[in-house]
Nucleic acid binder design. Structure first.
Length: 503
RNA sequence: GGUCCGUUCGUCUAGUGGUUAGGACUCAUGGUUUUCAUCCAUGCAACAGGGGUUCGAUUCCCCUACGGACUACCA
């Protein structure tokens, strides 16, 4: 590994299905890694054992796979800096947290939940808006800074529960340069002595992510804006651990907001606004959510939409496949402000990608029974014909169903209105003309239609819609001559005869 | 409440110390398609407000307003 190699990580916590905000973070990390010939790691941050959800880790891996975001190193693929799951790295964190204690950068705290609550409510009563465990309040709490050395040792010896808190310095400006936002500066008086190490022997996110990022040689931390307020704490931790020169570059991404702009998009918003918020479906216990995949979106369209929500290429192109996204991606072109989610535009992206998909690609999504019953050539032709007027891949099969079987139902309104004796007679006549077409090509069929209409002095609208309906069952679709051509002469004649005899 | 971050058409966004402030989605209208969809054309529509700095600010600075994130032994 070269010294300046770009190494980024996506580090979700397996507390449920990953929603599109998380996927976008993963995507930006991935694009950045590929663009810079770097590595993309997947790390599972499962330090909160209480919130683990069964199947969430698998869901994350499956989601990335569907999005074509390839993991170079991480839980699913391994790598030289593993393990990549924090619950399997407990011993690693222990070492560093005790180093911090030794160097007076952290301390033991023995306060119970009740005592913490009391402290907070007292501070509130005193008019403190944000009650913190900080340089002031810690002097009134039970910790290794207030207790005698002997008592601390005694408590530790007898196995009292404790947490380890970081010792935040007084009145110190902590600043760092964010790739997206520029310099961000916070006074340490606004930080509290965050817990680094929990009483269950697990580190908190703050400690674990800093230690892991350092050990895994992460060069850029690209994550959501919700982490911006705790970034100074992380910066301080790098200093405390003596890794100042190894501090990664930070980039805090703008959030994806609800369509009405009130807050960040959440897992529950899918039901509320009527669009998927998850990449693939999630089905567990009483909870079930449809995914973009199952809704009929293509991964390319999904990525394209996500990428453009907060980033732009600097020109007016909007449609990109993964390689093009990689080619064009830059952190410098990521916006600062949150983006409200717009499902209509998302659908438009899918439509654009569907039109670019080849018939071959589209039929991969067809039901396997169709692939068995029809030739690939036929299915590809159908797909190419239908895709022009579909928005989703899974619509193609449905819209073109009359290519796979005779219509079972016919447009009721039109039949009622137009299927009269005069028109039946005309259909019989046109059937005769169709039967006489020697080479059954789209062009010849079209010519046959036109000649017939001219001869009879009819407008297209007078007879063709009914012809369309008796052959395909529905009023709209691709040009009729194209449909006839694909169906073949024999099938067309048979369908028309069937209608004449049975409708 | 406190801290931090943000603010260009309804939405996603481009952009610059001097522009008719550009594109895309949506919507509307017209054209092509005998249907539907596509496609094409046209239209609607924005620099949050107030102070500075400047010959000149949408652009730079400050304030206000508004919005968001965070404020746990959650990540």
């Amino acid at each position: 590994m070269s010294k300046n190699e770009v190494r980024v990580r996506f580090a979700p916590s397996p507390t449920g299905p990953l929603h599109i905000g998380g996927v976008r973070t993963a995507l930006y990390n991935y694009l950045f890694a590929r663009k810079n010939n770097g590595k993309f790691l997947l790390r599972i941050e499962d330090t909160d054992q209480n919130r683990l959800i069964n199947g969430a880790e698998k869901y994350i891996i499956d989601s990335l796979k569907w999005c074509k975001i390839q993991v170079d190193e991480g839980v699913s693929v391994g790598g030289e800096f593993g393990p990549y799951k924090q619950s399997e790295r407990k011993d690693v964190y222990k070492k560093y947290v005790f180093d911090l204690i030794k160097n007076n950068k952290a301390y033991y705290a023995f306060d119970s939940n009740e005592e913490l609550n009391t402290m907070r409510s007292n501070l509130k009563k005193e008019g403190k808006a944000a009650p913190q465990y900080n340089s002031i309040s810690r002097s009134r709490m039970k910790n290794s800074l207030t207790l005698s050395k002997k008592e601390v040792e005694e408590r530790l010896r007898r196995g009292d529960k404790y947490v380890i808190r970081i010792l935040i310095p007084r009145n110190q400006e902590i600043k760092f340069k964010d790739e997206i936002r520029g310099w961000v500066s916070v006074n340490s008086n606004n930080l509290d002595d965050k817990v680094l190490y929990k009483s269950d022997g697990m580190p908190t996110y703050h400690l674990a992510n800093v230690v892991d990022d350092y050990l895994m040689k992460i060069s850029h931390v690209i994550r959501g804006e919700e982490w911006l307020p705790s970034a100074p704490l992380h910066i301080l931790l790098y200093q405390y651990l003596g890794w100042e020169n190894k501090t990664p570059t930070f980039a805090h991404l703008p959030l994806i907001l609800k369509p009405d702009g009130k807050g960040k998009l959440s897992k529950r918003d899918g039901a509320k606004y009527g669009f998927p918020v998850f990449p693939i479906s999630w089905d567990q216990n009483d909870k079930s959510f449809i995914g973009y995949k199952e809704f009929g979106f293509s991964p390319d369209a999904f990525n394209n939409m996500l990428a453009l929500l907060g980033w732009n290429p600097g020109n007016e192109n909007e449609i990109f496949n993964m390689n093009e996204l990689i080619e064009n991606f830059s952190l410098k072109k990521v916006n600062k402000s949150g983006a409200k989610f717009d499902f209509k535009k998302t659908v438009w992206f899918n439509e654009q990608h569907l039109k670019k998909m080849s018939g071959e690609e589209i039929i991969e999504n067809f039901d396997s029974s169709l692939l068995k019953s029809f030739s690939r050539e036929y299915l590809v032709s159908v797909a190419n014909l239908i895709k022009e007027r579909a928005k989703f891949v899974n619509e193609v099969e449905v819209e073109g169903k009359y290519f796979f079987s005779k219509p079972k139902i016919y447009d009721e309104k039109l039949i009622k209105k137009k299927w009269n004796d005069d028109n039946k007679f005309l259909i019989k006549e046109i059937l005769f003309e169709i039967t006489n077409i020697e080479v059954f090509s789209a062009n010849n069929i079209s010519k046959c239609f036109n000649d017939f209409l001219n001869k009879k002095n009819l407008n297209f609208g007078e007879i063709m819609p009914i012809l369309r309906v008796i052959v395909s069952g529905i009023k709209f679709g691709p040009p009729l001559n194209e449909i006839f051509f694909l169906l073949g002469k024999k099938e067309v004649i048979s369908r028309i005869k069937f209608a004449l005899n049975n409708l």
